[in-house]
């Protein structure tokens, strides 16, 4: 039976290991945005041992390319983008201490395995709920790669950001489990 959790970042192994695929989590605190282009650069920094733009330990990364903010707003609409494009980078991010990813859509076996090894969680946010999710973001600040525009790395302060656990630390996958439960076989 799915449970509900309220968690504050940075996340610890204790936080992530209690979660199971299907659980609903409300995340508060600081999270960081990155899409393909930013991931490529971030992973290079990690592999070269160079200075990282934020503390990766326990961090949660949100895969998002928001709309431009209206005057006076911190950010525009900000729903998740499709995650498979980050599959080749995510295992390294987890290896170096990141504990969570927020996106939508299936992940590779390598990412699921890395979640098991490094106590990482892949969270799904509701695709197409950009207005709702944008409102959970209280502040936004570009902290790296401003030249990437919507793909720049942003530090976001979120409050009760609603996500669902897709891949947990035990190798479960909500997309597979959910589908098997409701598939009608002739």
């Amino acid at each position: 039976m799915a449970k509900e959790y309220y968690l504050t970042t940075p996340l610890t192994s204790e936080d992530t290991r209690q979660l199971k695929s299907g659980d609903i989590v409300y995340i508060s605190g600081i999270i960081y945005t990155a899409r393909d282009a930013a991931h490529k650069r971030l992973v290079e920094l990690l592999e070269k041992g160079e200075e990282f733009p934020f503390d990766i330990e326990g961090s949660v990364i949100y895969f998002v390319g928001p709309t431009p903010p209206k005057p006076g707003d911190p950010i525009g609409s900000a729903g998740p983008t499709t995650s498979y494009r980050m599959d080749s980078y995510s295992p390294t991010m987890l290896e170096y201490g990141s504990k969570g990813m927020i996106g939508k859509g299936r992940r590779s076996q390598e990412v699921k395995d890395a979640c098991k090894i490094y106590d990482g969680i892949y969270f799904g946010a509701t695709g197409g709920a950009g207005a709702l999710l944008g409102k959970k973001i209280k502040s936004a600040e570009v902290i790296a790669y401003p030249e990437l525009g919507p793909e720049a790395v942003r530090k976001l302060e979120v409050e009760n950001f609603p996500v669902t656990v897709i891949n947990d630390t035990y190798g479960n996958d909500l997309y597979q489990m959910g589908r098997e439960m409701y598939e009608v076989k002739e």
Binding site: G128, A129, A131
Partner: peptide, 19 residues
């Protein structure tokens, strides 16, 4: 959540989705 999103987008004139 999708329906709540639609209500917020309409009331506050925010894009329904970033795409």
């Amino acid at each position: 959540q999708i329906l709540e999103n639609a209500d917020i987008a309409k009331d506050e004139k925010r894009p329904l989705c970033q795409d």
